[in-house]
Design a protein around this nucleic acid. Structure first.
Lengths: 207, 207
DNA sequence: TGTATCCGATACATATGTGTATCGTAGAGG
DNA sequence: CCTCTACGATACACATATGTATCGGATACA
């Protein structure tokens, strides 16, 4: 298998995965036929079955990629903030939290895709366990940076850091989902998510 | 149309709706065939199409019932608490909040059905608007009782009541969804939901 | 008891989706 | 320049779902 052939193959897979992520977000896993995925990617089903075993296999790969990407994005953002000395005593915790949550790149399609992934995690025990494991990693990262922030700050956490991280994540998720329902675009989603998030941060910290 | 005929017809509809709610929760709207719904209800598709126009129509009815029931349950619980004088100065706000949130009867199937309804609301603008409208009613009810509690209490709300109500609802939802993913039963769901909820209530109130 | 009516069962037509088997062709390698 | 391989297209077999049209029987009522 030559380099260009490989590259072409990888390109095909990437295009199929991308088309699938859009369609799964829009109409769900069941609602998106293999045919429709291929059509959007500019292929026929021959390409699909020569690259994936089934729609389920593709979905699992996609979910894995998305989860990995989200966890990494949060971790990177956390490291980035730590590196650039964002943890100064005078930093704005609300701003920091928003920057971290925003790492997930939650545009409209992203919110819908995550919702589809979550409902699948709800229906399939094994997949659900994997989802929760990934999420625990994310919570751990967020929790760690919260602890760091609080350590150098005159402020104090009023509940355990892990609990705070979970709350922030869930509130962010809930607000972006509702924003997407109301037809908001990416910027509006960020805004409505941030607003409630700011209030929560305010609650979490005590003098 | 005689009384018994009507009763029988209503019974059939109820059984179909009940079977549908289970199946929609377990495998989603798309994953549940009309045939499967009828089989679980003990009918054939003849009964279905003689009672409903299509699967979508049934789903809309079901979602309407569920939404109405939830809003009413919360309202009733709120009234009940108010009537039995639960709003004494020495009441435990954490306990009150838990009793209200618990009104939604969130067992495993209920959590999954609500998730299915939400994802549908996410994909269909009109349905989404209806969902958000119902939710606003619920938030208003919760918000009202929160205000009442705070009014007679020495404690004070640290953020607007409506915002607090929204947060409580979203955290409850997020925790029960994750509990259901982990395979928890109804009692465990209540427990894990309550735990984080208690912490949030604690945050919301200031001396 | 006869009859009309309504509801649920059955049968049918049609559509859509999946997966496999086969084919054609572009490009790598000798 | 020829051949061989691999990838994507095409064609086919099969399964499953929807919706409609028709049928049969139970029940209310005269």
């Amino acid at each position: 298998m030559t380099t260009t052939a490989t590259r072409s193959r990888e390109n095909t897979r990437a295009r199929l995965l991308d088309a699938a992520s859009q369609l799964f977000a829009e109409v769900g896993l069941d609602g998106a036929s293999v045919e429709a995925v291929c059509e959007r990617a500019g292929f026929t089903r021959g390409a699909f079955y020569s690259n994936f075993e089934s729609k389920d296999e593709l979905f699992l790969m996609l979910a894995g990629h998305v989860a990995e990407q989200r966890v990494n994005a949060v971790r990177e953002r956390v490291d980035e903030i730590a590196a650039e000395g964002g943890l100064a005593e005078d930093c704005d915790p609300i701003d920091l939290v928003q920057r971290i949550m925003d790492a997930g790149s939650d545009d409209r399609v992203g919110v819908m895709l995550m919702s589809e992934i979550r409902i699948r995690a709800l229906r399939d025990g094994q997949f659900g366990a994997a989802y929760l494991a990934q999420e625990r990693e994310m919570v751990a990262s967020i929790s760690a940076i919260i602890s760091d922030i609080v350590a150098v700050s005159p402020l104090e956490l009023r509940i355990p850091a892990e609990s705070a991280a979970r709350m922030l994540m869930i509130i962010w998720e809930g607000m972006t989902v509702r924003g997407a329902m109301a037809g908001q675009d990416a910027d509006q989603l960020r805004h409505s998510g941030s607003e409630e998030l700011g209030r929560l941060v305010q609650l979490l910290l005590a003098e």
